[in-house]
Structures are given as structure tokens and as C-alpha cells.
């Protein structure tokens, strides 16, 4: 009886996975990359001409549907700077400046190859409609076309691991359909029970040897206070 149940379960789960729509896959990818709410600490290393140019450490608090708050912990001159993103709006708080500075989500993140949105927005399924371009034994190749004109990249090609439903690679395209950046995801690790890539490398197509690496150090599921996601409270 147990065996029959197991076989039926396996068939059911396999069928569910194999029948996933492209949009579902993107949703799974989003869900697999972060918790609904929680904290994350990361190290961002910027390389120019294959040499380390800048290294920053950040703590990120996020609550899906509410916002993302990033706080710099190092280097010393960036320490205590905070960036808040709520939907498409973004503010930066710099210690010593009384009012938060409004930023564009599409601007470069602290001079790196990432745009602010690349690092702050963990949900791409809301902004893109996806189709499956190719299906191979181990991976899906998806094409994501933006449904929100505020996104930085109108088109993304994403390779997703079939088994884990985690992204392997992304190609980011401009409005003229030219490749502008690539993101490679690697070194999957468990973070608080969630398996996800711990290293993201973004490369600018216009320059050789320039790239930005994001190393996820920790990620925990945790209740985050809603009040944190307010420009008025950002300096507290």
C-alpha cells in the first residue's frame, strides 16, 4: 500500500513539475531565492580589469510585497548608509544628511555593474511575463519580457535548473534587444534550510575584466517589522 502511495505521489509530483508553466517556473525561482521575509548578509566585490576595485558588506532586510532595506556595514566610509526600496521607489539615507535622497532604481549600484534594482528587487515574476524557449534534460531556457516599463531590462533570458528550480544564468537585454549584462549563479548552499546559489557574478558586456560578485554569507527567515520600510523611518 505504501509503495503504491509512493509511486502515485512520485507520478503526481513529477507531473506537477513537468507541467509547470514558464510563469510558474519564474515564481518558483523567486520563491527559492529568498524567504517571504527575512534577513540576509552579503559581500559585494567589484572588479575592474580583473582586479578587485571595491568591497562592501551589506545587511539586507526584506519583506515580500512591502520592501527591501539594505544597510552598509563596511567599508568604514560607507558604513551606516542605507538604501530603501518600496515598489519602484528608492531612497538612500546617508548619515549626516537629514533627509533621504531619492534614487533611481535603474542607476548603477555604488558604481558597480549592478543596477540598484538588480540587488534590491528579489521578485521578477511580477514584472515579467515568461515563455519557455527550450527545455533540456536538466534545464529550462526561459524568455522573460517585461510587463512593467519601469524595469531596467526589457528582456531577460534565464536558464533554470530543472531539479532545484534555481537560476543558473541570466542574460539581460536592452530595449534594442542587445545583450548588456550576464549574471551567473553558482555554489548552491543551504541557508536556513533553503537551497540557493551563494555566488552571483554580473558581467558588463561592454567591458572585459569588469564584473561584480555578490557572495551571500547568511540568510535567515525572520519576521521583519513593517515600519522599517518607510523613508521617514529609514534614519532610525
Amino acid at each position: 500500500m505504501k509503495r503504491i502511495f509512493l509511486i502515485i505521489s512520485i507520478i503526481f509530483i513529477s507531473k506537477t513539475i513537468f507541467c509547470l508553466s514558464a510563469q510558474d517556473i519564474v515564481k518558483y525561482v523567486d520563491a527559492n531565492l529568498t524567504f517571504v521575509e527575512g534577513e540576509m548578509s552579503a559581500t559585494i566585490i567589484d572588479f575592474k580589469n580583473n582586479k578587485e576595485n571595491k568591497r562592501m558588506s551589506v545587511d539586507i532586510k526584506f519583506k515580500r510585497g512591502r520592501g527591501t532595506l539594505m544597510e552598509f556595514t563596511s567599508p568604514a566610509r560607507e558604513k551606516n548608509k542605507k538604501i530603501l526600496m518600496i515598489n519602484d521607489n528608492m531612497w538612500m539615507f546617508v548619515p549626516g544628511i537629514s533627509r533621504p535622497i531619492r534614487m533611481s532604481a535603474k542607476d548603477s549600484f555604488m558604481g558597480t555593474s549592478f543596477s540598484n534594482r538588480d540587488l534590491m528587487d528579489f521578485d521578477i515574476h511580477n514584472d515579467y511575463s515568461a515563455i519557455i524557449l527550450e527545455q533540456q534534460e536538466n534545464e529550462y531556457k526561459l524568455e522573460l519580457i517585461s510587463s512593467n516599463k519601469n524595469v531596467t531590462y526589457p528582456k531577460i533570458i534565464m536558464w533554470v535548473d530543472k531539479k532545484s528550480l534555481l537560476p543558473k544564468k541570466q542574460e539581460l537585454y536592452t530595449i534594442s534587444d542587445n545583450l548588456i549584462k550576464t549574471i551567473d549563479f553558482s555554489e548552491t548552499k543551504y541557508f536556513n534550510g533553503k537551497l540557493r546559489p551563494s555566488v552571483m557574478v554580473i558581467k558588463d558586456i561592454l567591458t572585459q575584466g569588469n564584473m561584480t560578485k555578490v557572495l551571500i554569507n547568511t540568510m535567515t527567515e525572520k519576521q521583519i517589522k513593517e515600519e522599517l520600510f518607510s523613508p521617514q523611518n529609514i534614519e532610525r
Partner: peptide, 16 residues
């Protein structure tokens, strides 16, 4: 040559 600039919607764009 690659030329990159921001579009009117403030997104990056590249032309070859």
C-alpha cells in the same frame, strides 16, 4: 562599436 546610453525611460540601451 558599442554605444550605450539611457533611454527616455531611464533604462540602459545598447546599439551596435
Amino acid at each position: 562599436c558599442y554605444i550605450q546610453s539611457q533611454t527616455i525611460n531611464n533604462t540602459p540601451n545598447i546599439l551596435l
